[in-house]
Design a protein around this nucleic acid. Structure first.
Lengths: 204, 204
DNA sequence: GCAATAAAATGAACAGTGTTTAGGAATGGG
DNA sequence: CCCATTCCTAAACACTGTTCATTTTATTGC
């Protein structure tokens, strides 16, 4: 009587297919330019079927965000749990954060620049925020270590953590959204900004 | 024969009315949630009429952005043309920039962030680039002065200017959009981030 | 093997979107 | 007074996210 189990497995497989198709489309075309019909076309089902597997379009995207969030935390956690100079690890963390944002621009924007009336669905916001807080904790821990080892000229962990986050966030958002601006080479801008921030908090 | 002139004046007035209505709606509801029909309703004309005054929805939006850029430039230019320690003026400029963003959150977001939603029309990007560039030039000039007076530990004006912009932008976007996050007192976060950036570029 | 049943997928429909266009109404010049 | 120009509108087109009655499909009990 493995019918039930096979049914569930097939359901999960189609759900995963939809997510995979959606991810490809979102990355290539951006959130607004992907329609449910396009996703349905790609998995060769009718539009209505999508709604048997996801509440709505935002639900698909949020699910993708959680998956990507997990990836980000994994990257950040690796650096946070590493050993070595805290300031050097903060530098690595800053780079890693911005790299992640640039590699997943659409997910990053919708997740961090929680825009328009997605805020109506408070449940989803909370859902994303809790998984996002896990990422911020990695940064907090790094800053705490830096302060404990007397490498940082401030004492307030929260203050420094939020300032650093804001700085990295700024580079990320700028590079993602202001495509028309004649930026210097991206990696150089990232490197310079991270460097300024690190030297700005270093104790001498 | 003042008919021609009256006609032109009336055309300009309706154009301005459309812009005013659109700004109010964009600010309140965001780019995607404002339809041409809503704008048309507000000025009490038919949707088709809008297209006699603007090429398309993005054209309306771009015009509003230009106006916002002009307001911001006015503020920044005052500091850029001032005298005194360049680093101190950079500090003031950073504060002024973030303050402007926080005082006009919707306009700021619409101008600097929301434009990612639109599929890029190259002509319009150039148009916004020029008016936005005027703002950025104020920052550039400040940085150039700082480098010329040997107060900054880097030599590349563009690199430092873009890094500083990214940092200020980050604080602004974060404070405007991530309302759910437990931030420290806003003014303290602004002050600390600006301070880190200034100390990060200072020559010693 | 066949009918009953439960699950899944569909496709049409609804209300909305940006944009285009054929044609009607108003106005000024000759 | 009539014609030409300008202005505006209403309808239409091709999209969008979403819902739902209906049909198709698969599984079960007999």
């Amino acid at each position: 009587m493995g019918v039930q189990q096979r049914r569930e497995r097939e359901r999960a497989e189609l759900r995963e297919d939809i997510l995979e198709a959606a991810r490809g489309l979102f990355v290539k075309e951006g959130y607004e330019n992907v329609s449910i019909r396009k996703i349905a076309d790609k998995v060769e089902y009718s539009p209505g079927t999508i709604y048997l597997y996801f509440k709505d379009k935002a639900d698909i995207f949020d699910t993708l965000c959680e998956q990507t969030f997990a990836k980000l935390r994994k990257r950040m956690q690796g650096i946070a749990e590493d050993t070595g100079d805290p300031l050097e690890r903060l530098r690595r963390a800053g780079r890693a954060y911005i790299d992640f944002a640039i590699e997943n621009p659409n997910e990053y924007m919708v997740t961090f620049v929680a825009k328009q009336e997605r805020s109506q669905d408070e449940v989803d916001i909370i859902r994303l925020q809790t998984s996002g807080m896990a990422c911020f904790d990695c940064l907090r821990n790094l800053v705490r270590q830096g302060i404990e080892e007397d490498r940082i000229r401030f004492t307030d962990v929260e203050e420094v953590s939020q300032s650093l986050w804001a700085t990295m966030h700024g580079v990320a958002v700028l590079l993602i959204t202001c495509c028309g601006f004649p930026f210097i080479e991206h990696s150089r801008l990232v490197e310079r900004t991270v460097d300024i921030a690190i030297e700005g908090i270093r104790k001498r």
